[in-house]
Nucleic acid binder design. Structure first.
Lengths: 218, 218
DNA sequence: ACCTGAACACCGTTCAAGT
DNA sequence: ACCTGAACACCGTTCAAGT
């Protein structure tokens, strides 16, 4: 026995979980409807009873991937910058947990299909700093774009390192996880710093109670 | 006569420019090797004399798209934040100039193939603020990820609006260019603000000469 | 409710051979 | 130097029909 192709008749959940396994084991380019069907011991056409098309399947995978993101144990004493950092880090970890996870989420988030919960969590974290809704929404999308772009890049390099393909000639850096994490934290800190600065600008003195803070210029 | 399928025998440049035209007219999913060959009045296999594979073709397109980005007329009196904002805006315009431009650049930038010049221009702008090389490099990648993510999203919505596909039910906002531009500027300002704050932190008083500024924590 | 079988309309890429 | 022709090994999706 090679997998979970046990007793015929599958559920939507089976299909999604098997797809996640293929994704993680072989990567997004190898996640085809025909390969997925074969893993389920079924004809490709059978998949269309569970999902109307591949796009919808991928959106479901995106939801599951970000849905597995840990809720940062913020404790009681977490201020808003740490909440934002915590959500960003949890999201990064969730994306890294599946091969090509960032690309799956990015491709469906762009369509407004998946990744919505991810943005909402980031948004809530920003709003806890007392920023108005539009500022929080925009900051959250900026954060999300950075996170998805960074982790996509990170995962692409992982594949290249394992395949041994070097594009730029040179012996391109072998992708140190410590470096990646530091570069990630730097980007998040830049955005958080920008928010901090927004707050300071709108409340020059006594700038420490989390009230409503207006956006810069409209 | 329908296009540029004139007198046989094409150059690499022909192929790339025709590909750009198909990209702009029909979008990335319709830019197939076979379609491109047909537009050139040639067999698909002929394209492989000019480019080793589709990936390389796309990298070439990415280079041409970002290569067409205007050099912001910064004048003499431009400070570093305006230089950064100017480069980011020029890059956005360049991506918007071709349908699916952001996705093309993003897909190849992730592979370390295309988009390198874009990053370098952003990096130079940041460095003009007196930041050290690693800070400038990291800030530039953060900016690039945001720009690519934002414009990809923007262009995806453009397609959906024109096709009339609404994912989230609701009558999803019809993508106001003014709003998009404002959200873009907000994101860039957040990153620029973060850099500003980095500088202020390392030079608490008399913080206005552009010297070397060290990165926060390593 | 869940799947088969067969088909439709495609893909990217390779390679011997032509001019 | 640049291209043809034919093939290889695939794709996603539809649809009548089966159980």
């Amino acid at each position: 026995m090679t997998g979970n192709e046990s007793a015929r008749r599958h559920t939507r959940d089976d299909v999604a979980e098997t797809a996640l396994r293929i994704l993680d084991d072989y990567g997004l380019p190898d996640l085809t409807m025909r390969r997925l069907a074969a893993a389920l011991d079924v004809q490709a056409s059978a998949l269309y009873w569970h999902f109307p098309n591949k796009q919808t399947l991928l959106a479901e995978l995106a939801d599951r991937i970000v849905g597995r993101a840990a809720v940062p144990a913020a404790g009681a004493g977490a201020d808003w910058p740490d909440r934002v950092r915590g959500e960003a880090a949890a999201l990064r970890d969730a994306l890294l947990a599946y091969r090509d996870g960032a690309e799956v989420v990015a491709s469906t988030a762009a369509l407004g299909l998946g990744g919505a919960p991810a943005q909402q969590r980031l948004e809530a974290a920003v709003r806890s700093g007392g920023f108005d809704d539009e500022t929080a929404a925009r900051a959250a999308t900026a954060l999300l774009h950075f996170v998805l772009g960074h982790v996509s890049h990170e995962q692409q390099r992982m594949q290249f390192d394992s395949i041994g393909v070097l594009a730029t000639g040179e012996a391109a850096d072998p992708l140190d996880e410590t470096d990646s994490a530091a570069a990630f934290a730097f980007g998040v800190d830049l955005l958080v710093g920008g928010l901090h600065r927004l707050r300071d600008a709108s409340a020059p003195a006594a700038a420490d109670r989390p009230e409503e803070i207006s956006r810069s210029r409209t």
